[in-house]
Amino acid sequence: MDPILETKQLSHIYSAGTPFERTALDGVDFRAYPGEYLGIIGHTGSGKSTLIQHLNGLLKPTSGQVLFQGTDIWSDPKITRQTRFRVGLVFQYPEYQLFEETVYKDISFGPQNMGLDQKEVDRRVRAAAYFVGLRDDQLEKSPFELSGGQKRRVAIAGVIAMEPQVLILDEPTAGLDPEGVESILGNIRDYHRAHNATIILVSHSMEEMARTVDRLVVVNGGKLPFEGTPREVFQHGDELERMGLGVPQLTRVFHRLRALGVDIDPSVYTLEQAKGAVLDALAKRGKALEKGVE
């Protein structure tokens, strides 16, 4: 399958030519496939936000290319603008970008900019509000009267209302209580299913990632050292630890068991997998014992 979004040897240097120069991305080859739920994980300052701001053309590469469905998004200003609508980006702490008098108007900002007719804008605003669990009577309120968590939902709805094919969220659950985290992750999953959209979720919580994504990309020091299913990535437990990324607790226990000399698969991260791994290990040991008796 061809990737929907791809970067080729993408590098980005902030404040080039000043003493504050800083290479945030260094020759990154990144791929996202249609319909997948992808996680980007990395330590603070590793370059996650920089990477995703390239994916919808907000940052221009210092060198390298960004391709959307095979076309370079910087080849034409029109294409750059189109890409912003097709690849929706929800920023870190998006609640600080709200500005309209009412929630409804704020959510409609994106669709209005797309030049849609009034009826279509209305349909999209209501659909987006529904996805993030905002009630109809909340649409006419001022966004500034809402709680922090509700503001975040409004901001996410503002991007969902553009109905992007790729939805990127930069730490959408930062600073929320566990219930808020679950419900926002649920909303995102609903959008993923309903539109068969590609989701790219940025986080630095391994536990959260392990539960939600199909595939994981690790960012470290402006490069992508590992990628694969969560299980494949967790095999590199020690290296991840060294990058300051804890693996899930369960995985850590199994890594430790292995370090103690137990022949066991250390890449597990759910209880179900753990049970399987323990049973496998016991079965193996049982067989070895049987052999010994013969």
């Binding site: 701001q53 919808n56 907000l58 603008r81 912003r84 609508f85 929706g88 980006l89 920023f91 998006p94 600080y96 970008q97 900002f109 994106g110 900019n113 797309m114 503002g158 991007v159 553009m162």
Partner: peptide, 9 residues
């Protein structure tokens, strides 16, 4: 950047 992401020009 956030508003540009929603198509502000």
């Amino acid at each position: 950047s956030a508003q540009r992401a929603r198509g502000a020009d």
